[in-house]
């Protein structure tokens, strides 16, 4: 469905952030994109959704196709119309608009007649938003703002949602809730999801396929269930080291084998 083919992204004409990154997302899947800080995960999502320009970034090489159509030269607005919607990092709700106005803004690309039914659909999934429909979004709790950000995505009836760290800054209970929402979106709304996460454990449990990024490249990929069993992933992303006796461990860290 989505094909990112060997792209390079440069910020400010000099900083090369993505160095030939490729990935592929099948229709109907949840695909996780993992990696440490600064690996280029958010940049990858922005390259797909066309949001690099405000950050002074540019795709200098490679191409991105969505449903067989090239989108790497398109405007952000056209990309949303073609069915890709990004839920940005840090929620980014419109703070001085009410909940309902936020939802209406999310439906900008939709026909006016469908807005009402879409709002009802969002309220059906998130009853808490309905209770607060006239409240100013900036005063809501982090979890509610994340629900609003996801609800805003639902308003556009996208075929594919790009989620940038939906669990950022939320309590473990809320993280669980957000992931169950992601699952629900995938199963009930048939939305394909590309998920960027720091919380590798949750992301691998919720996804079908996973990519691991480092320094602007994909270094490892595979079905999420296999990645979860990979020793390197366990050590560096999941923090599971098994019953290791520290007395016997040598005083150097395990080497990442994919770097050789």
């Amino acid at each position: 469905m989505l094909n990112v083919n060997n792209i390079e992204v440069v910020y400010n004409d000099v900083i090369l952030v993505l160095k030939g990154l490729s990935l592929h997302v099948e229709e109907g899947q949840v695909v996780a994109l993992l990696g440490s800080n600064g690996a280029g995960k958010s940049t990858t999502l922005k390259a797909v959704s066309g949001l690099l320009r405000p950050d002074d970034g540019e795709i200098t090489d490679g191409d991105i196709t969505f449903m067989g159509e090239r989108i790497d030269r398109k405007d952000a607005a056209d990309i949303v119309k073609s069915g890709i919607f990004q839920v940005m990092e840090g929620r980014r709700v419109f703070k001085d608009l009410t909940v309902e106005e936020n939802l209406i803004a999310g439906a900008y690309t939709q026909k006016s007649s469908t807005i009402k039914t879409n709002i009802d659909r969002v309220y059906h999934y998130f009853p808490r938003l309905q209770e607060r429909r006239n409240q100013v979004a900036g005063y809501m709790s982090g979890g509610e703002q994340q629900m609003l950000a996801i609800g805003r995505a639902l308003m556009a009836s996208p075929r594919m949602v790009l989620m940038d760290e939906p669990s950022l800054g939320l309590s473990p209970l809320l993280v669980k809730e957000i992931f169950s929402i992601i699952k629900m979106m995938n199963e009930e709304e048939k939305t394909t999801i590309l998920l960027v996460e720091q919380n590798a454990n949750m992301a691998l449990s919720a996804s079908h396929y996973g990519y691991i990024m480092e320094n602007g490249r994909i270094v490892l990929d595979g079905p999420s269930s296999e990645l979860k069993e990979n020793d390197d992933v366990k050590e560096f992303y999941l923090g599971v080291t098994g019953q290791k006796s520290f007395r016997e461990v040598k005083h150097y860290r395990r080497r990442k084998r994919w770097l050789s």
């Binding site: 959704s49 949001l51 405000p54 952000a76 607005a77 990309i79 949303v80 119309k81 919607f85 990004q86 940005m88 980014r92 709700v93 419109f94 703070k95 001085d96 608009l97 106005e101 936020n102 209406i104 803004a105 999310g106 900008y108 690309t109 805003r152 556009a156």
Partner: peptide, 18 residues
């Protein structure tokens, strides 16, 4: 509403196709 959204957060507005 979209105009106010742009005023509030331009990049977020851009991300929803405004």
């Amino acid at each position: 509403v979209a105009m106010r959204a742009v005023a509030s957060d331009q990049q977020a507005a851009l991300s929803m196709g405004i």
